[in-house]
Structure formats: C-alpha cells, structure tokens
Design a protein around this nucleic acid. Structure first.
Length: 627
RNA sequence: GGGUUCGUAGCUCAGCAUGGAUAGAGCGAGUGCUUGCGGAGCAUUAGGCCGGGGGUUCGAAUCCCUUCGGAUCCGCCA
C-alpha cells in the first residue's frame, strides 16, 4: 500500500492532535487534493468550527502548527488554506522512490480486505436458446471484472454461470425443431447459437400469432422438459448443451471464464426446493392464505408491496421458487445435493466444472463452489425479485450475505436499429430476442476486429499478419470491455455500431496506445534501468503528476471494491494514461540531459507500464507492446 | 395508479456514498503543434442558473420534500 497508507497516516496524526486538544472526535476526510491545493487535503477544520466557535481558517492555522512529519518524510509540510482546508504537500524527492519501487512489485495495488473469505460471483446466466447479444455482454463483463477486483483484494472467488435450460424459451426452440420443421443442422455451417436464436426462436414465436395449436404445444413441451425421463427432455438437454458450447466460445473470446456451471434442470430435480420450502415454512418466512385473492397460495409477505406468490393454489411453485433454492445453495444454507464433474477445459486452460446428480464413481472433486457471500449480477429489471431473494437470505444468514449487483440495460440507438433493417420511433430501443431485435456479440467483435486489423496494419507494415491479428483481437476485446465498464451501473448504455466502437478519445485504444508508446521508449534504449537511485531527480510537474497517479492505484482499488464499482478502475486507467501521454509529449525521455536523469525517467516509464498493465488486468484488458 | 431509477456543456458521460476551495472529461466546433521516444497524440479557445421549485446548513450538483420529463418493474407467465 502506498497512498492509502499515507492517507491513513495523516488521518491518525490528525486524530491524535484532536485528542491532545481534547476536542470531541469527529468523522473528517483525508483525501487526494485537486491540483493547485497541495497534494492531500483534510476538511477537519470545517467540522470543528461549530464545536470550537471559531472560523475554519483560524482552526486550520492552529492545527497546522501541531503536525510533526519526522516519521513521514514523504510529507513536506501542511499549510492552512484561507478557505479553511488543511493542505498537505508531498515531498517528491522522498515519495518518488517509495512509489516507484512499490509499483514494480508483483502484487502492487493488492489489498487484503477479504482475508481469503469465500465469495461467489454469478454472472452471464443466459438462456441457452440463443447467441449472446451486446446486452448480455454488459452482464458478462461486469461480473468478470467484479470477480477480478475481488481477487485482487484477497477474496477467494468462485465464478458461476447459471444455465436456465428448462424454461419456456427452451420449449420454444424445441417446438421449432419438433413441429416447425427446422433442421438440427444449421445451413451453411452457421454457428449453432446464432441459428437457434436468429432463426428457430424468432420464426417459431412469430408463428404462434397465427398458429394457436402450435402455441399450445409449448406448454406440453415445457412439462416434458421438466420430466427428466422423457425423450423431449433428453432432446432439450442435447440442444441446450450445443447452444451452451457456442455461447462459451463467445465469452472465451472476450477473455471470460468460469469455475462451475449450474443447470436449472438439476436444481429442479435435486429436491432443493422441497427442503427450502420446509425451511421457509418452519421459519415463518412465508404464509398460507386461507382467503382473499391469493386463497390457497403460499406467499412471501413483502413490505409496502403486494405479497409475492410462491406456490400457486394448485400446488405448483412459481418462477421465483427456482431462484430461492439456488441462492440458498450458493450460500450453502442447505446440504449440497450435487456431485461434480469436468465440463471442459477452457481456452485459458482453466478447468470448468459442472454439477451433476449422477453418481460419480470416484468422488474426484467434491468441489466447494459456495460462498459466505454471494454476488449475483442481473440487470435491474429483476430488482424486485432479487430484493425478495436477498431479503430471505438475510434472514437465514446475515444482512448483505446475498448481494444483487444490478445494472441498467443496453439499448440500441435509432441508427443501429435502422441498420438492422428495422424501424423505431424513439431515440433508442430495448433489445428483444423474440423480435430478433439485437446485435450479436460475435458480430460486434468480428466487425471491430476487422477495423482494428486494418488500422493497425497501416501503421505497422513490418509486422506479420498473425502479429497484427493478435493486436486486433487485443484492441477489439479491450474496446468492447471498456465501453461496457466505463458508464455507471445505473446508466443505460445506448449501443451504437459507430459511436460505441470509436478508437479515439476516452476509449480503450487511447489507453492501450499510451502503453505501446511507453514500450517503444524502453525498446530504443540500451540503458538497463536501476531503481536504486536517482528518483529524486524527477521534479517536473509532468513527472510528479504521473507518479502521484501511479501511487493512487490502491486508493482506486479500495474504492472500486467497497462500492462494487468496476468503472472506478476504468476511469483510473484512463486518468493514468492521460498523465502519461502528457508526460510523453513534454518530457523527452531518451533525450534526457544526464545518464542519471535518463535512468530515473526510464524507471518511471516502467513504473507506469506495470501499474497500467495491472489496472487493465483488473478490467480483463491486455496491454499491447505495439498496435 | 404504486415502487425503483435517471435528468450536469450542442451530444455522450465523471463528480453525488462521506455537503466545503476554481463543477471535470470525451465527442463535435475554432486555433496551434511532427528535420523531436509512434499524431489512435499534445496544447489551447468557446460552450454550464448541475431539469424546475422549496427546505436543512455558516455552506448544496451532492442530503430531504415537491414538481416536471424519460426509463423500468408491478400475473396463481417464465
């Protein structure tokens, strides 16, 4: 820890001073200052003003005299500002070395907030009847980044993907295959998930409007899917796994991997629900209605809202009755009914497990994919149901054990809808799988990769096609990820094929470019950087700004994990790149006046590179040496 | 109708959790910068009653209330 330590140190000094003066303790802030107001700032004088019946300015003047920095050489002084703030100035001749030598360590920016506590992150969870579209990608990327940030903070993270392989959407494509004459072999070797979603699903649901008999079939099919002994169920298993295989290829291309797949069909057959139902009853978490609209139903009482029906008067459980046992399973509130087997080895060579109800001979891995805490990434349209689930879990475990990480959806811009050959009245439109109104993730990645390929080829004529290809993938994946992470969770992303995939300005390629520029400097020198001396020579504002940004990494990681806010790291990466780009433009490293200065600057460039690389790593974005 | 949420520059968004000093970026518009480590860049100019109104406070983009506008959820569907 570098900057967090510094802030904490100043905070405790300030607290001691307050104690020594017998002031009532208060909750003040110590944080990085805006440019022009020192380096670190503290607002304690404002808060003492009432208590002491003095102006903040007077208090600042008095307090500023009481600080001692003998044990904190990287702080030069503290000055009372006329506004009332206490502004601390960093002594960069000392600070530089602390920051730069820390930054080259492997675990720079890591924090031990989790103490290796088990935590589960569930994301993706797309029905296996279609290909992933850009809306799903927001979920996938957010979940992936959250899991990486948690790992950075020493949580023991397991990543799950819930495969809803037995709902109506699955029934729809089975109806398509069984009754509408769609072949199970897609024409022209089309990717199977695209074929199922773009053709079978869309066309079949379209037919329901004119063919009511067909629509009745879907409910028959749905019932049979849930009966594991039926042929339809076996067919559904086969089809959904084929789709799932293709969906996994998509997310792997985006650099996303899981620990375990959970199948809804297995949750249903595991009898988990029955156990939880009993538990809910015995704990009085649900009630049976004798009269009224919901007579004969078991309901979950909800404060300030309508009660949620859990079991219908005919004894059949509703949709939410699938989410509750799964949530309870993730928190291990119930005994684990599953065995585990290897599903596949992923593109990054990480093993992907799946749950199974089959008896596994050699109980190879009684895996422990559960957590003391669970984070479920689902878009905000499900916030109501998720509140009910987290409310119940809080009663069984503790407050906050189950966290719903919600986010706003991705819509399509009017231009993009038009480019799909469809019309819209508004500025943007919700995507719809049923209507075929969406942009597939694979398509976006391919389009973007091609564009980057051409761009990169024109700039790097000496590189081979396979090298350019690698760069194109790195930049394309980074661009998509960055666009999904950058906006706040509660902001709608209006996806536009043109503007969302820009490569200039506040984009991933800007950030990656700054890394590549740094690489070119290092490539062109014979000097072997020595971090042991000379860092005090870095004294220009460009250098100091960059060092301060590098130092702030831990503050940002802390902020990001405490608020479950991936975008904090995205902004940090950008800010860090901006600081470097400015430095790069104004400080000619290779033309440094003395060998000592050259060495110090080279070290700074390395420091920058290492820090940016690990920040980008948290976002799942690679840093290219060239592009 | 009820719940949740968003509203900041022409456009897209930071800042809001924990109120404080000059409200920041990018795109777009204007002007410069390449015999300099890669111009996917740098520098610079213009552009804001932080949706409106009220309140709390010494102090509000930030907290509270209200109002307007947009989004979204609200089935014995999944």
């Amino acid at each position: 820890m570098v900057f967090l330590d510094l802030l904490e140190n100043i905070r405790s000094k300030t607290t001691s001073i307050l104690e020594s003066q017998n002031y009532t303790p208060i909750n003040f802030s110590v944080e990085s200052a805006k440019p022009g107001f020192g380096d670190i700032t503290c607002n304690v004088s404002f808060l003492l003003s009432k208590q002491l019946k003095k102006s903040p300015q007077e208090i600042s003047i008095e307090l500023s005299k009481l600080y001692e920095f003998n044990d904190l050489p990287q702080i030069k002084n503290v000055k009372p500002h006329p506004s009332g703030y206490l502004n601390f100035e960093i002594d960069y001749t000392k600070f530089n070395n602390i920051v730069m030598s820390s930054s080259i360590k492997e675990n720079y920016g890591s924090l031990d907030l989790g103490n290796n506590e088990k935590i589960v992150v569930e994301h993706t969870s797309v029905n296996p009847n279609k290909a992933l579209h850009v809306g799903h990608i927001r979920n996938v990327i957010l979940g992936d980044v959250i899991s990486k940030i948690l790992k950075k903070c020493n949580f023991d993270v397991k990543v799950l993907n819930y495969v809803d392989d037995s709902g109506l959407q699955i029934a729809d494509i089975i109806v398509g295959f069984k009754y509408s004459g769609f072949s199970q072999d897609p024409p022209n070797n089309e990717k199977f998930d695209h074929y199922c979603g773009d053709t079978v699903y869309v066309k079949t649901t379209e037919k329901y409007e004119t063919d009511k008999q067909l629509e009745e079939k879907r409910h028959e099919i749905l019932k049979q899917i849930e009966d594991s002994s039926s042929d339809i169920s076996k067919m559904a298993q086969m089809i959904t796994r084929r789709v799932l295989d293709e969906q996994l290829k998509t997310v792997w291309n985006l650099g996303v991997f899981y620990d375990c797949l959970n199948f809804e069909s297995q949750i249903i057959h595991s009898k988990l629900w029955e156990k939880i139902f009993e538990k809910l009853k015995s704990d009085n978490q649900i009630k049976y209605e004798d009269s009224g609209d919901n007579a004969g139903c078991w309901v979950i009482p909800a404060e300030g809202e309508d009660d949620k029906i859990l079991v219908r008067s005919n004894g059949v459980a509703t949709y939410i009755a699938k989410d509750i046992p799964y949530a309870a399973w993730k928190l291990r509130l119930v005994d684990d009914p599953f065995s585990y087997k290897v599903f596949t080895t992923q593109k990054n060579s990480q093993t992907l497990y799946e749950t199974t109800l089959d008896v596994v001979d050699n109980d190879i891995d009684k895996q422990d994919f559960f957590g003391n805490k669970v984070i479920t990434v689902i878009d905000n349209r499900q916030i109501r149901l998720q509140k009910i689930v987290s409310g119940l879990m809080a009663k069984f475990k503790e407050d906050g054990a189950y966290t719903h990480l919600g986010y706003e959806s991705v819509t399509l811009s009017a231009d993009t809808v038009k480019s799909l050959g469809l019309t819209t009245d508004g500025d943007s439109t919700q995507m719809s799988g049923r209507k075929g109104l969406y942009v597939n993730a694979d398509t976006v990645l391919e389009t973007l990769t091609k564009r980057v390929y051409n761009e990169s080829k024109s700039r790097n004529e000496d590189l081979s096609d396979s090298e350019i290809d690698q760069i194109a993938k790195t930049v394309a994946v980074g661009t998509i990820r960055y666009e999904m992470i950058k906006p706040d969770l509660d902001k709608i992303i209006t996806f536009d094929l043109k503007t969302s995939l820009r490569l200039e300005g506040d984009t991933c390629s800007y950030i990656q470019y700054s890394y590549a520029r740094a690489a070119r400097i290092l490539e062109k020198t014979q000097t072997k950087p020595n971090f042991d001396s000379g860092s005090e020579l870095l004294s220009s504002n460009f250098e100091k700004n960059l060092i301060k940004k590098i130092a702030m990494f831990d503050v940002q990681v802390n902020d990001s994990v405490k608020n479950l806010s991936p975008k904090v790291i995205a902004r940090y990466s950008y800010d860090l790149s901006v600081a470097f780009s400015s430095f790069y433009e104004h400080v000619k490293v290779l033309a440094s006046e003395t060998p000592e200065l050259l060495n110090a600057r080279l070290c700074l460039v390395i420091s920058f590179q290492k820090t940016l690389k690990s920040a980008l790593g948290l976002l799942g974005i690679d840093a290219p040496e060239r592009m």
